[in-house]
Amino acid sequence: MHQQQRLNLVLELISERGNVAIADVSERLGVSTATARRDLNTLAEQRLVTRTHGGASALGSGYELPLQYKIARQADAKLAIARAVEAMIEPGATVGMNGGTTVTEAARALGRSERLASVGGEPSITIVTNALNIAFESSVRENIKIVVTGGVPRRQSYELIGPLVAASLRDFSLDIAVLGVDGLTAEFGATTLHEGEADASRHIAAVARRVVVAADQTKIGRSTFARICALDDIDVLVTDAPLAPRLTAQFEKANVQVVVAPPVRAVSAH
């Protein structure tokens, strides 16, 4: 295992638990205690964790991994959700997108889509986003016209936040908003970890005729710090597994259509 892979796994572990001991890292990664200690020291030097006696802890409550350090948790689920989102987008559509790994995969699916291929060198869809990584990746796709909101970027997510997001969206009208979330419940609706990102996502949703939340099953039934919108404001949830009966009833009551994405089928090599 390469060092960067180890660092990613250690960060995920600290994000989940809040703190870890050197022995925990050694056992989880199958490395020596000396290697585990060096990895924790490296992360502390990068100011991603706080070094403690015998281990390390997250920088604070509500700790959020920077996007570039996130490993592909639920990777197959995200790919399946991305394909289902792509199937919802019609040629000529204007699509609002916030940031995050699931929505990034959806943007990649749109860029690769043969159904949404460029005609005569002209873009077939427009993506309006506050996510710099999505804008950068999609800018090379001739079938996509990219519009980036104003705002100040967060290092953790590459998302633009602040009053310039709302100001740049004020005169837009979007066909569909595709939103990634950190949590989704009937009681609190769609939520995320950072209030600035919640505000930006809320403004994207406000100028869209249809709001789609793209979230794998690990996000369903949990709520995080900042609300994006109430459940009633969501039109469609695209996820990777059927909801529990109680949640299904709650989402039906809120008139939220639940789309369960077909699983990604691995292609075997011959």
Rank of each mutant, 00 (worst) to 15 (best):
T218A: 09
D24A: 07
V236A: 06
F172D: 09
L43F: 01
R210E: 11
P242Q: 03
G151A: 05
L40Y: 09
V211N: 05
I146C: 00
V165K: 07
Q156I: 13
L40T: 12
A186W: 05
A200S: 12
R246D: 14
R202Q: 13
R17L: 07
L184F: 10
S138F: 04
T126P: 06
F172W: 12
I134F: 01
E187V: 01
E137C: 00
R222Y: 13
D216Y: 05
A131K: 01
V20W: 03
P263D: 08
S32L: 07
R154S: 10
G55N: 03
D235W: 00
R6A: 02
V147P: 12
L29V: 02
V119H: 11
S173W: 06
F188V: 11
E16F: 10
A135M: 06
A230I: 02
R115N: 15
L7S: 09
Q250A: 15
G111S: 12
T149R: 01
A261L: 08
S157F: 08
A269N: 11
Q4K: 12
V128T: 03
C229D: 05
L243Q: 06
A72P: 14
T52Y: 03
A23Q: 15
A84S: 13
H203I: 08
T50K: 14
G180Y: 04
I127P: 02
P91V: 15
E27C: 04
A198C: 08
G196M: 06
N255F: 10
V140S: 15
G162T: 02
F172P: 03
M1F: 09
T248F: 01
Y69W: 15
D240A: 03
V264C: 10
Y63C: 06
L11K: 00
V181K: 07
P242W: 04
N41M: 06
I146P: 04
I71L: 14
S223K: 12
L40G: 08
L243M: 06
R154Y: 08
V140C: 13
M97I: 07
S57F: 07
I161F: 03
A230S: 06
R154E: 00
L174F: 10
I127D: 06
T218L: 07
S268C: 08
R227F: 01
L169S: 05
V259L: 03
V238W: 07
